[in-house]
């Protein structure tokens, strides 16, 4: 029996921090998230002129008394959100040298965030991609849905090459309503198409978050003797003396991380570089706190 991906102690401590959407969401039930439509909540939104056909019950008579004009008083509409977790399940995500395998770490992030979202009444869905979109679980807000997500994450094993870019385009086309899209990947994919995929998601008014997972050894690249490196995805191999190329490797990695970070900035997506040896709680706490709206911004 697989170990549960949910960390209940962690969830108990983080339960008080809501996961907020940065953009207005379109939910099907009332919730805690801003909606682009006007609704009947207690929070005032704006005045607008009366036009024939408007419900006369919403006329603001005090305003009429002051200005001798008819105004309709509008209030914000609050709704729930749909969160889509897009997890990269290519073979490269199976790498774990100094920490746990990247896909396992990503699964834990997905499971715990999904729990928090369902707990606050939002719907959670899951998309697993390899060469292309491999499996999809549509968003639901029922607590029982979490079991399905956990079961799916535990059943699937990383394999194949990365098709994240194509998968994101497919997801952007498929999700009709505004949603929060959380991407978890090592991003070892086509870097030029990556930014286009993010822009596609943003064009569809989705709130995009990126968890960029890296193994500490992939960053440090510390080996003391010649190694044969076998590519996890296509099995090609290369014999090198790490000491000879460490500097060039690290420079290439730094360039890559900078490119990814800048591309996220350009599309206003949240970006978080995660090493798999880092504890989960600070990571998620910072993530949640960082997304809380600042005072007066709502």
């Amino acid at each position: 029996m697989s170990e549960s991906l949910f960390d209940h102690d962690l969830l108990a401590r983080l339960g008080a921090i809501p996961l907020e959407a940065r953009l207005p969401m379109l939910g099907n039930v009332a919730g805690r998230h801003r909606s682009p439509h006007r609704g009947s909540s207690v929070e005032f939104a704006e005045y607008r002129k009366y036009v024939p056909g408007d419900d006369t019950r919403r006329l603001d008579w005090k305003a009429y008394a002051r200005s001798d004009r008819y105004y309709i008083k509008e209030f914000e509409a609050d709704t729930n959100l749909r969160a889509y977790f897009v997890i990269d399940h290519s073979a490269s995500m199976a790498f774990g040298d100094r920490g746990m395998p990247k896909y396992q770490y990503a699964s834990r992030i997905v499971a715990n965030l999904a729990y928090l979202l369902v707990n606050q009444g939002d719907a959670v869905g899951l998309s697993v991609c390899r060469e292309s979109l491999h499996r999809e679980i549509p968003p639901r807000r029922r607590p029982a849905h979490l079991s399905l997500i956990q079961q799916t994450l535990q059943e699937l094993k990383p394999m194949g090459e990365t098709g994240l870019v194509e998968a994101l385009h497919q997801i952007a086309e498929k999700i009709s309503q505004r949603a929060v899209v959380v991407i978890l990947s090592d991003l070892f994919c086509d870097s030029s198409g990556w930014e286009e995929a993010l822009q596609h998601l943003r064009y569809r008014k989705h709130d995009v978050c990126v968890f960029h997972l890296m193994d500490p050894q992939e960053i440090a690249f510390q080996f003391d003797r010649p190694h044969r490196f076998v590519d996890l995805e296509d099995q090609t191999s290369l014999v090198v003396e790490p000491q000879l190329i460490a500097e060039e490797y690290q420079q290439a990695l730094r360039d890559f991380l900078l490119r990814v970070k800048q591309s996220c900035h350009r599309v206003q997506a949240d970006y978080q570089l995660v090493t798999t040896d880092a504890p989960l709680e600070p990571l998620l706490r910072d993530f949640l706190l960082h997304r809380l709206p600042k005072k007066g911004t709502r």
Partner: peptide, 28 residues
């Protein structure tokens, strides 16, 4: 030493290939 290398699976192969190409310089 070159013959007695250790085989390791590796994910970040693209950086390894790039580094190998670029390291044929003064470090070698």
């Amino acid at each position: 030493n070159r013959r007695r290398h250790k085989t390791v699976p590796w994910a970040a192969m693209q950086f390894l290939l790039k580094a190998t190409r670029e390291s044929r310089g003064k470090k070698k």
